Simulated scan of single mutants.
Amino acid sequence: MATYDKGILGGFSGKVGSVIGTRWRGKNVMRSLPAPSNKVPTTAQVEQRLRFAAAVRFLNPIKSVVSRYFGSNQQDKSIYNLATSYFIREVVIPDGSGGFTIDYPRVLISKGDLQSLANPAAAPAAGEQITLTWEDNSGQGFAQADDLLIAIGYVESLNRALIFNDGIQRDATTDTLQFPAYLAGMEVQLYATFVTADEKEAATSVYLGAVTLI
């Protein structure tokens, strides 16, 4: 492995011929392609790969949210990397049949110091809607009346997430989430959080439970 500051091409990421360029601990790094391995992976390696796959499968549909609001960068770890690490460590659990699944109550879609939803509740309404309510806790901590709601509904059977970011403010105390008609009868895992009006700070999200659309 070699490090470099400024080559004739500058820093690069990815494979060029037999060389891979990347960033490692704040430095540009070049290394050769790894040789194929015939080693059988250990049980721990297999488990880690399965955990990673389960985490990424859930995170990919909501990447636009977690990559912005899941804390802040730490050295060379991106916000999305931090979210992935958290999911592998805290959210992915054995499914009882040799694989891994998501523990939905442990899921976070954001992490931060902003005040989150106070006494939230979610209820299904006719026409594939979910009515979301909360109390106005403006003035508590860093909470402001114009903080913006972000809600996510995740449908496990389709591995699909619907993101609601419609400019609803904290002091509105209610929002109606409209889901597509083809999701009628399906179960939705629901999460919500607040971000500041400038979208620079976020709260730690809350889990609102599983809601079946009607």
Rank of each mutant, 00 (worst) to 15 (best):
M1G: 05
A2W: 14
Y4M: 02
K6N: 09
I20Q: 02
T22L: 09
R23G: 00
V29C: 04
M30A: 15
A35P: 01
P36D: 05
K39T: 12
K39A: 04
V40A: 09
P41N: 02
A44H: 04
Q45G: 12
Q48W: 15
L50Q: 15
R51D: 00
A53L: 07
P61F: 15
Y69R: 03
G71Y: 00
G71Q: 11
G71M: 10
Q75L: 07
D76T: 11
K77N: 15
K77C: 06
S78W: 12
I79A: 14
Y80R: 01
Y80G: 03
N81K: 09
A83N: 06
T84R: 10
I88D: 08
I88Y: 02
E90K: 14
V91I: 07
I93N: 03
P94M: 03
F100E: 08
Y104R: 07
Y104K: 11
R106F: 13
L108F: 13
I109S: 09
L117A: 05
N119R: 09
G127K: 06
G127L: 06
Q129Y: 09
L132P: 11
W134Y: 07
Q140H: 08
F142G: 00
D146I: 00
D147W: 13
Y154Q: 09
V155M: 14
E156S: 15
L158A: 06
N159C: 04
R160D: 07
F164N: 15
D166M: 06
G167P: 00
R170M: 04
A172W: 01
Q178N: 12
P180E: 05
A184M: 08
E187W: 03
A197R: 06
D198E: 07
D198H: 10
E201Q: 11
Y207F: 15
V211P: 03
